[in-house]
């Protein structure tokens, strides 16, 4: 554990809590892509199956359980409790275009051809692209509420901090995980355009982020 890793995990947690609280307090999930949230729940489910096989640390177990619980709570709020506010007509990204290549890749490129390893690899690849329905939705409607953009900022920050963590671990422990690094860099690149808009529009202005 190093400071980048811890800060990354905290950013990730903050992002998820921001989104959950926003939906809970406003009793609305308008502008939120339910598809992205289902994909994230799928990411956590397939990645954290090792909860049943190995024990790493109390921190590790608690965080995994918390991420799983919060992601399912978010999906529940969007599709059950506040489904009347869900903008399904704008959440039209074709998820199968992500799932099919990601499933294929995880069978081709993995560390071991075992069910748990393939599912872990699938979760890493899927996480890299899971935000695309949300970014697509923002592009389609041309705007996002500021709280939604804060959520995206912390989600992107989490990935950027993980890259710093990998650089640190490479130099201090000679440890590197190529599948995680390549996917993490790809995931972070998706956020670059958003980061630019966030700093130039959301933080300098007020309220919604509107696209040119």
């Amino acid at each position: 554990m190093n400071v980048f890793r811890l800060a990354g995990d905290v950013s990730h947690l903050v992002a998820i809590i921001i989104l959950l609280l926003k939906i809970w307090r406003s009793k609305s999930c308008a502008g939120i892509s339910g598809k992205s949230q289902v994909l994230f729940a799928l990411v956590f489910t397939t990645r954290y199956l090792d909860l049943f096989t190995v024990f790493i640390s109390v921190y590790n177990t608690v965080m995994k359980v918390v991420f799983l619980a919060l992601s399912y709570a978010t999906v529940y709020l969007i599709y059950m409790r506040f489904r009347n506010s869900y903008n399904s007509e704008n959440d039209t990204f074709r998820v199968e275009f992500l799932l099919v290549p990601v499933i294929g890749l995880s069978f081709l490129e993995n560390y071991a051809f075992t069910p748990l390893e393939i599912l872990w690899t699938f979760s890493i690849f899927l996480e890299a692209v899971a935000i695309m329905p949300q970014l697509f939705m923002i592009t389609k409607t041309g705007e996002a509420e500021s709280i939604t953009t804060h959520y995206l900022f912390f989600l992107g920050l989490y990935r950027a901090l993980y890259i710093a963590n990998w650089v640190w671990r490479y130099h201090t422990e000679s440890f590197y995980d190529l599948i995680a690094i390549v996917s993490g860099v790809v995931q972070t690149i998706f956020f670059c355009d958003f980061f630019y808009l966030y700093f130039t529009r959301v933080l300098r202005g007020r309220g919604k982020m509107t696209l040119p």
């Binding site: 790493i56 963590n165 995980d177």
Partner: peptide
Amino acid sequence: DRVMGGKDEL
């Protein structure tokens, strides 16, 4: 080892 190492991260 690698497999354990990969999974200590979230």
